[in-house]
Design a protein around this nucleic acid. Structure first.
Length: 462
RNA sequence: GGCGGCAUCGCCAAGUGGUAAGGCCGCGGCCUGCAAAGCCGUUAUCCCCAGUUCGAAUCUGGGUGUCGCCUCCA
């Protein structure tokens, strides 16, 4: 397995800290709104990493947090009058349902910030006691970045270049010092020891240390992941806090996924160009979206477009047509060569493009074989085995082949479609081809495409 | 201003020194009542300039364009 370390900026051979176990922590969402495609990309990328490592024989412990204390959430509380729990649980459940649709495996650990306040306070207290942090007259607690000689080594910056662009008026000792604990002006109190609420960066460090980390050695965990926008300052700050409070580096490898863009610009809430996942999921199945997101290497920027989403659907359709052609058989073992080719590609820093080209080759070769009519039961089992392997490794191909093509079709529509198809079949039998074609046109207007086969007429929603 | 990414066929996208994967679209053919699906065939010298090398999309230098981080952000 080779992965690209975004701190060392090099593709490196992956070797775990301990035996064959791998500990991964990925920065999850702040739950003040529904998830957009950017969240999807991050989740799908690291879900793929997890699956590939597991398929490669590693035992993976995967953590992803929910940031459920944050100014935006508090703002929302103030505006709506709802309490924090009501707001955050709504968006957590929305996030989880979107992730399920995308076939993202549930993490082993899903810590919430609010449930780990004690661990955060403990870490802040230690940093205060050891002189890495200080408290201002207003009660805010800051991390003193000048006390960490390795500060800025993660994101490769220089102190003088990090002057904040916005004029901050606080009693900070250094421009890069960041907040560990924010004292409340409004009576908000999350902690037992400290008044107010935790800073953003501290939660990841504290939760990693509390739930995931190796207690000795040079590193807390193997891999830390997140979006490219988190490298600075979020991960820089996390790394520094962890280093100074635990004496270990936070992660052996750092991985960052690229952005999702719309019309060439980064998708973000503040630009108002986000696509909510739940809206896209009304038009396409989660699996199509997952396949689309995986069509570009996770490190590259990803420019979202309807055309290419449809392109991806067409490509995935072909796999499902194979699945229809061998429908109902037993699932056998995957072909060893096929397995190896897919896995080799993915073990090279998740090269999904190569993996997909192997898939394409499998599809066309299998169609050719099936066309010849000389496919044994054993071979059919292997075909299904290959598809099942794709499902476990890439998270695609696992749905029922007929249901896949009926996405967004209601029960009533299905009855209507079946009725029209039988009318057409009758017409065809009587060689009334004009009538048959009229029915086909009518189905076409309903976005239903039909295909006559030896075993009857099949239909697909296109 | 500092730092970084990217620039490959109409569109998407692999490829990090040895002579350009794959998908979509298009075109031709087979199959089909006609279609659809499927199969076969078919389309590029890699933003520009200079350099290193027997040899570069791949390395170096200089441009141009574009996106991003430096403020919350996946």
């Amino acid at each position: 397995m080779k992965i690209f370390d975004s701190v060392k900026r090099d593709k490196l051979p992956f070797s775990p800290i301990s035996g064959n176990s791998v500990k991964i922590y990925v920065c999850g969402p702040t739950v003040y709104d529904d998830a957009h495609l950017g969240h999807a990309r991050s989740a799908v990328s690291f879900d793929l990493l997890r699956r590939v490592l597991q398929e490669s024989g590693y035992s993976v412990t995967f953590g992803r947090n929910f940031t459920d204390v944050d100014d935006k959430i508090l703002d929302k509380m103030a505006k709506s009058g709802e309490d924090l729990e009501t707001i955050t649980s709504r968006y957590i459940s929305s996030y989880n349902s979107d992730m399920k649709a995308l076939n993202v495996l549930t993490p082993d650990l899903e810590p919430k910030a609010t449930e780990n306040i004690e661990a955060m306070e403990k870490m802040v207290l230690k940093l205060l006691e050891d002189g890495f942090a200080y408290q201002t007259s207003s009660g805010d607690i800051y991390f003193d970045t000048s006390k960490d000689s390795k500060y800025l080594s993660l994101s490769n910056r220089k102190q003088e270049d990090t002057e904040s662009r916005i004029g901050e008026v606080v009693e900070k000792r250094n421009p890069t010092d960041f907040i560990l604990w924010k004292s409340a002006k409004d009576g908000v109190r999350f902690g037992k020891r400290f008044v107010g609420r935790p800073g953003w960066h501290i939660e990841c460090s504290a939760m990693v240390d509390e739930h995931l980390a190796y207690k000795s050695g040079d590193y807390s965990i193997d891999i830390h992941g997140g979006g490219a926008d988190l490298l600075f300052p979020h991960h820089e700050n996390e790394a520094s806090q962890s280093r100074c409070s635990t004496g270990k580096e936070l992660a052996k490898y750092w991985m960052h996924n690229g952005f999702v863009k719309i019309d060439g610009e980064k998708m973000s809430k503040s630009l108002g160009n986000s696509f909510f996942l739940k809206d896209v999921l009304k038009l396409y199945s989660g699996e199509v979206i997952r396949f689309y997101l995986l069509s570009t290497n996770y490190r590259q920027d990803f420019d979202f477009s309807d055309t290419e989403l449809l392109n991806s659907k067409k490509r995935l359709d072909k796999l499902y047509r194979i699945k229809k052609r061998v429908y109902g058989g037993k699932v056998g073992e995957a072909n060893p060569k096929f397995r190896e080719e897919i896995l080799n590609a993915l073990q090279d820093d998740l090269n999904t493009s190569i993996a997909f080209s192997v898939l394409d080759k499998f599809v066309s070769e299998t169609n050719e074989k099936l066309d010849s009519g000389k496919v044994s039961k054993v071979e059919k089992r292997e075909i299904l085995g290959n598809i099942e392997f794709l499902n476990s490794t890439l998270g695609i191909g696992g749905s029922d082949a007929f249901q896949y093509f009926q996405f967004g079709v209601s029960e009533n529509e299905k009855i209507e479609i079946e009725k029209l198809i039988s009318i057409r079949s009758e017409a065809k039998k009587e060689k009334k081809f004009q009538k048959a074609d009229e029915v086909r046109e009518k189905l076409g207007k309903m976005s239903i495409q039909i295909m006559d086969t030896a075993s009857g007429t099949l239909w697909e929603k296109i």
